[in-house]
Amino acid sequence: MTRATSTSRPTASAGSWHRFANPGRFLRISGHVYPWSLGLALLCLGVGLVWSLGLAPADYQQGDSVRIMYVHVPAAWMALFAYSLLAAAGASLLIWRHPLGGVAATAIAPVGAAFTFLALATGSLWGKPMWGTWWVWDARLTSVLILLFLYLGHMALTHAFENAERGRKAAAVLALAGVVNLPIIKFSVDWWNTLHQPASVTRIGTPAIHEAMLWPLLVMAGGFMFFFFAVVLLRMRAALAAQRAEALDRRIMLGR
């Protein structure tokens, strides 16, 4: 209770990145960033899809089914990245009471859940020809499934309260508690000796993947990243516009 009164609103003169938490400034900046983000996403995805599905070499063991990797791996990266952002947005809402943090978390959660689902679905499609099964209870797969449930729980909790602010804060606490899962996902392939292969791109030293496959993979990852930012910015702008519309409605109803 004492903590509730001791925090002051973040001021525009805070001098650090806090000033970007001002909704008005956010709308202005994001208005400039959004078209670029969307354009780069379309460019990267277009080039990346042609490169990875057409031009990149087939694997000498896996054949053409290796091309699933160009969707699967970026989707899995984005699932983790989106969750980190979700937790960071939640932290900014809880610690500094930035209202924009709550808006961002609400915007990120479904997108992150979609990437997680995409990673699981493409992994399943890839697993059938390679491992001979759609699903195994392997540590990596199980921990990513938990991640999907965390996203879904976050979404459900956000909308479970009459008071939207309370929903956002409760969901933020859940997002922060769920951060425990991120290192488990990352290191699951090292801690448990399982079917899923260990990291081959982000390991120390040279990647264990040939350049002819690494470059299209990175272009696809860039495309996924820009796409994510474009969608999240659009969702955040829409949420802010909806808030403003609601406030105007209320003012009209009060006759002012």
Binding site: L150, L152, G153, A156, L157, A160, L174
Partner: peptide
């Protein structure tokens, strides 16, 4: 989930993972 709508359904979704 204190004070949430349908808290009984929500708790398993949050806690089971």
């Amino acid at each position: 989930t204190l004070g949430a709508r349908r808290a009984g359904v929500l708790v398993p979704l949050l806690v089971l993972p």
